[in-house]
Design a binder for these strands. Structure first.
Lengths: 117, 117
DNA sequence: ACAATCCACTACCATATGGTTGTGGATTCC
DNA sequence: GGAATCCACAACCATATGGTAGTGGATTGT
């Protein structure tokens, strides 16, 4: 597998628990224990989710005594934003055009349907 | 599993082939065959990838005779953009703060390291 | 009618992931 | 020193996914 950094990022964001973690971390760093409490999941599972976020470089983990403090990396979120915004021209230009295209297709589909119906 | 529409979208975006498909489709609709050519993947695999994009409502598939035409849904990409932008305040406000926080942590980490090192 | 083209469906395999349980290492509190 | 707390590591299971190979249905071209 090629590294595909953006792919790893999107994969990390595909889980609702991890997105909730990001939401929480956007208000400030938190320990693993702090992240475990609100989620009704085992500590081990939370650690696994954090590991995915760390691997995607969305979160940085730092040891502080017996605690591990998790901090959100803003640049990672910005990467996602940049990707989406690179299609901005598309989803701004196309909102009207799409209706026309889809309608045209539906017309042709209906016509084709009549041919064998 | 709860539906988690955003999660399905991110999962669909986690594969580089599918993102390349989106890039291609952002220039206009294409048939499954048209999407197969540039990717050096089997037709079945392309169909599978398209199915994930359709499930995530990123792509609409319409039959035209023996072809299936794929069209990009702008709103899906906008969903991703909206999610990322909702953290804009965070990754704009935090870029300087983060350095300070991380440096502070590293200092403390080094100090802790000396304690048992 | 016949061949070629476009596509979907199925079976199959390997790996990654969400989740559990059990355990043990550090660190902190008493 | 001993107990409690925070956390990671490992084994294990079920499911989803990336990928292959084989096949057959529809449609199109001749």
């Amino acid at each position: 597998m090629v590294v595909d950094s953006l792919g790893t990022t999107f994969a990390a964001l595909s889980d609702p628990t991890r997105r909730a973690m990001i939401e929480r971390l956007s208000h400030g760093p938190a320990s693993v224990h702090g992240l475990t409490e609100p989620f009704a999941l085992s500590q081990q599972m939370i650690s696994k989710h954090i590991a995915y976020l760390v691997r995607a470089r969305i979160v940085i983990k730092t040891k502080r005594g017996r605690e591990s403090v998790c901090t959100l990396r803003p640049a990672a979120i910005k990467t996602v934003s940049d990707w989406a915004i690179s299609y901005r021209r598309f989803w701004e230009e196309s909102f009207d055009k799409l209706d026309a295209v889809v309608n045209q297709m539906k017309k042709e589909e209906a016509r084709d349907g009549k041919k064998h119906g």
